[in-house]
Design a protein around this nucleic acid. Structure first.
Length: 571
RNA sequence: GCCGCCGUAGCUCAGUCGGUAGAGCACACCCAUGGUAAGGGUGGGGUCAGCGGUUCAAAUCCGCUCGGCGGCUCCA
């Protein structure tokens, strides 16, 4: 397709939001307009409305939009001195826009631009399409609440979301993508594959079924083995620790609202929301020599965070989870090298789980809440950048999104259908070594402050499994399958033969199950496929006589007849 | 937490205008003994999320609580 003939998506989508606002104003002349930007795939517009929207309003508004679009309205731009603009917006009672202009004025703007489409006029920087006839594929998707200017102290507006594309075909593709995403929903797959469940009694905490627990343990085992190879030592610290510790670490002050507390004998304890303070206690017990550094302490710690009820989402956002946490204490000179190792380690692990594409971001010093001076921050940020350069990696920057105690690398993976997920993190910490007075003895015989790195590769095993399920659509890699092969006797008469084969495969380390139900062969194959069992082995007269296996591979209808020995070679 | 929507059998869902519940799958039993994505029959299974209210009568209307979903805010 000729690129020039296509309108830049952002322009198109932002223009669609103006039409949405026009339609909403037709329906509610007193509506106050918030903002209406373009977003991925579409746009939204925020409104303050005289009544609450109901889902049935959406098609009505969409119809009005289509009507406007058909009129081939022009987008006309004009500029005004900012004072004139204020007057106009006051007169039209667009209070929210008045606030926006006041902000622009404070920033020193003297002129602002408006766009006029039919009778609709909106304060807007643009750019826009020239005419509504370019809006060929627009669809409203959902309604939600949203805080004005993202501030939860302020009243909520009603936000209408929509999508817009250059062509009907692209809209169809988007709809197909949505269907594909829904099919891969890890919450559904978790239920269908009998991996985990959630119950009213423990919102935000998973119940692991045998098949799910197997996957979970395999992931943990994998990381344990890798840690061992890469010079980590594993530790474990208590789950419930005195509030004193959390006050010392700063978590009490920053995250008290999101912690679970319990009182005992007039002493307050908290369930740990993270592992580091406990880890620091352990490190502080002895005063290591610089010769011992770096010290790499890994901990598969179960942590609890009292997340707000509205943010819980399957395994992706939970209140109880296990991190593949590690804390590395090193000298400033070792920092860069350690970061290099962590990046390599992280990307190696992602590849092992079948994630081929990833993106890295450096999150820098937050504007508001941050400790430590700029020089220290810059040094740490440089160390992160240098490590990336050494590995010839590209990275993006997330300005101001670092932790309050230091900059970090965020690892994102791209899944099979192109969605991005944030998983691992590598954070430099200036805070805890100070607060816990961590030291090592340097070459000079003096105490020195170690640099502390927090790193999690998997992140949380819960979240990682969610992403892996969405990525693979449930076709988990063999090493995570609790049942790699399932024997399906053609009839009950062959159950004995099937059990014999199962025993043999099991003895060779192939995790094998058998379907002894009275279901028909077809039904048993269907069930095996639905459970995403990698290999289905049908056993009947043929197999009993020849001693061979008829193998049906997951997702493939074609079967293969091979000897047991050959089959075992797959593993 | 906030805005909106939702909660009916183990699962997926139907249930009109208020008149105390249905289907398919799953499960149990029986028949059938099958060659690669649902063989047939019979049967059991529900305080309609919970509590309160309105009503002669509530799955249905109202309120509260709990939980889920879509967003917002948050994410050490």
């Amino acid at each position: 397709m000729n690129k020039d003939s296509k309108i830049d998506n952002e322009t198109l989508r932002h223009s669609a939001s103006h039409i949405l606002a026009t339609a909403v104003l037709e329906m509610f002349p007193d509506a106050k307009l918030g903002i209406g930007p373009a977003i991925e795939d579409g746009f939204y517009y925020d409104f303050l409305l005289p009544r609450t929207l109901i889902p049935e309003d959406l098609p009505l508004i969409e119809k009005k939009m289509q009507h406007l679009i058909k009129q081939n309205l022009k987008f006309e731009k004009y500029e005004e001195p900012i004072e004139e603009a204020e007057k106009f917006l006051h007169k039209t009672k667009q209070d929210l826009k008045v606030e926006l202009v006041a902000g622009l004025k404070e920033d020193g703007e003297t002129k602002v631009s408006f766009y006029k489409t039919g009778n609709f006029v909106d304060l807007c920087k643009g750019p826009h399409i020239d005419s509504t006839n370019k809006l060929k594929a627009v669809k409203l998707t959902h309604i939600s609440g949203s805080y004005w200017r993202g501030d939860n102290e302020r009243p909520q507006l009603q936000r209408i979301y929509g999508v817009a594309f250059n062509s009907k075909e692209e809209l169809k593709e988007w709809e197909e993508r949505m269907r594909e995403s829904a099919k891969r929903d890890h919450r559904e797959l978790g239920k269908k594959l009998d991996l985990f469940s959630f119950h009213h009694e423990a919102p935000g905490a998973a119940f692991w079924h045998p098949r799910g627990k197997f996957v979970y343990d395999q992931m943990v085992n994998f990381m344990k083995a890798e840690n061992e190879k890469r010079g980590y030592e594993e530790i474990a610290t208590p789950i419930v620790l005195s509030s004193e510790l959390w006050k010392q670490s700063g978590h009490y002050e920053n995250f008290k609202e999101n912690m679970y507390f319990t009182d005992f004998e007039e002493r307050e304890f908290a369930v740990k929301p993270m592992n580091c303070p406990g880890g620091c206690q352990l490190f502080a017990e002895k005063l290591p020599s610089y010769r011992e550094l770096p010290i790499r302490h890994a901990e598969f710690g179960i942590v609890h965070r009292l997340e707000l009820s509205g943010v819980l989402h399957g395994l992706l956002r939970v209140r109880q989870f296990t991190q593949d946490d590690a804390h590395i204490y090193c000298t400033p000179e070792q920092l860069e090298d350690e970061i290099v190792k962590i990046i390599e380690y992280t990307t190696d692990v992602y590849k092992s789980f079948g994630f081929e594409n990833f993106e890295l971001f450096i999150a820098t010093k937050p504007e508001k809440k941050a400790i430590g001076d700029d020089t220290t921050w810059q040094k740490a940020t440089n160390a992160l950048e240098n490590a990336m350069r050494k590995l010839k990696l590209d990275w993006g920057v997330k300005e101001g999104e670092g932790a309050f105690y230091g900059p970090k690398i965020e690892f994102n993976v791209k899944d099979a259908i192109g969605r991005n997920w944030q998983l691992g993190t590598c954070q430099i910490d200036f805070n805890l070594p100070e607060r816990f007075d961590l030291n090592y003895i340097g070459e000079d015989g003096e105490k020195h402050r170690p640099v502390m790195i927090h790193r999690a590769i998997i992140g949380s095993f819960e979240r990682f499994l969610a992403v892996l399920l969405e990525h693979t659509a449930g076709d988990l890699p063999l090493f995570l399958q609790s049942e790699v092969a399932r024997i399906i006797p053609v009839a009950s008469e062959f159950a004995k033969e099937g059990e014999k084969i199962m025993k043999e495969l099991k003895s060779k380390g192939v995790r094998t199950g058998i379907d002894l139900s009275n279901d028909s062969l077809s039904k048993k194959v269907r069930n095996g496929e639905l459970m995403k069992i990698p290999y289905l082995l049908v056993v009947g007269e043929k197999e009993a006589k020849s001693g061979k296996l008829t193998v049906r591979e997951r997702g493939k209808e074609k079967q293969e007849t091979i000897s047991i020995a050959d089959f075992i070679k797959n593993f």
